[in-house]
């Protein structure tokens, strides 16, 4: 009898150690961590996926990956300080070790969107989960039509990745003079020279082919509901609207049920879901 080698089984519940290779303070309460695997291969991921980050002795949280999928050797997360674990993550220094599980979940439908115009709408800390999709679009710019990034923040001080936003204004452009990156803030401060108002106000003036447009959005759920209404007014079909949903993800593999949203487990079936999948569940309480 020939004995076959045992298949390598990766336990999705077991964190892998990653070392913090770089820490970048983005704003007063947001930090970007670049992590490197201490053992094993780099962690390959699809734009829109998340990992579970474990601060030993403190706890574990789901965080979207915000780096370039073509550069998996550095696993990048952008984290906002909102609780004990995220505060501990934001306080990590270069050389610290964290546990990483994943990547988990669904991803942005970038293959389906080929040939389409792409409208990305981000609010607040919603920009980092879209950044891998932006990198993908930049790597394959010729495969897509017009690309827009609409970004709303609380104040100019809260804007993430300001230098990249400036670069993307040119690199995402489909034609000379186009302004693919459009930013608005709720409250103008200092020498802010851009728009003031809701991110939804940036949708009406876009030049798009609605029937061949895919929209990707991340942000507070209330913001996404109003964004969907504006995108629908522009005639974009429901099935072309995708959201990254956030629920109380714990196990990340669809076992525990903490992140259940109607018939979906957000950790397993999401976080990226098509609007028709969640339409009937978004406005229900306690789901």
């Amino acid at each position: 009898m020939v004995s076959l080698p045992s298949p390598i089984v990766v336990d999705p519940m077991r964190p892998r150690p990653f070392r913090v290779a770089r820490v970048m303070r983005e704003t007063a309460d947001v930090v970007t961590l670049e992590l490197e695997a201490q053992t094993g291969p780099p962690l390959r991921f699809q734009p829109g996926q998340f990992t579970m980050l474990y601060v030993f002795g403190v706890g574990e949280v789901p965080i979207s990956i915000s780096g370039d999928p073509q550069k998996p050797e550095r696993l990048v997360h952008t984290i906002r300080k909102v609780g004990a674990v995220t505060e501990a993550l934001c306080n990590l220094r270069k050389g610290a070790v964290v546990g990483v599980r994943g990547p988990f979940g669904s991803h942005w439908p970038l293959e389906q969107a080929r040939g389409h115009d792409v409208v990305m709408v981000a609010g607040g800390i919603g920009l980092p989960p879209l950044r891998p999709a932006i990198y993908h679009l930049l790597h394959h710019r010729q495969d897509y039509g017009r690309v827009y990034l609409l970004y709303g923040a609380r104040t100019p001080r809260d804007l993430l990745f300001p230098e990249e936003l400036k670069r993307w204004q040119y690199t995402l452009s489909h034609a000379p003079g186009a302004t693919p990156v459009r930013v608005t803030v709720d409250r103008a401060e200092g020498d802010w020279d851009g728009a003031v108002g809701l991110v939804t106000s940036l949708i009406a003036p876009l030049t798009i082919d609605p029937s061949r447009t895919t929209a990707l959005m991340v942000g507070p759920e209330v913001m996404m509901r109003f964004t969907i209404a504006e995108l629908r007014k522009r005639g974009i079909p429901e099935e072309n609207l995708y959201l990254s949903m956030e629920r109380n993800m714990k196990c990340a593999v669809g076992f525990c049920g903490h992140c259940q949203l109607g018939p979906h487990f957000v950790c397993r079936d999401g976080p990226v879901l098509a609007f028709p999948q969640v339409r009937d569940w978004m406005t229900r309480k306690e789901v």
């Binding site: 609010g123 709303g152 809260d158 942000g219 209330v222 913001m223």
Partner: peptide, 15 residues
């Protein structure tokens, strides 16, 4: 009015 109400909610602020 709707835009004003939504901005009053301070959706991007700390939960």
């Amino acid at each position: 009015l709707q835009a004003t109400r939504l901005r009053l909610l301070d959706l991007y602020g700390q939960p």
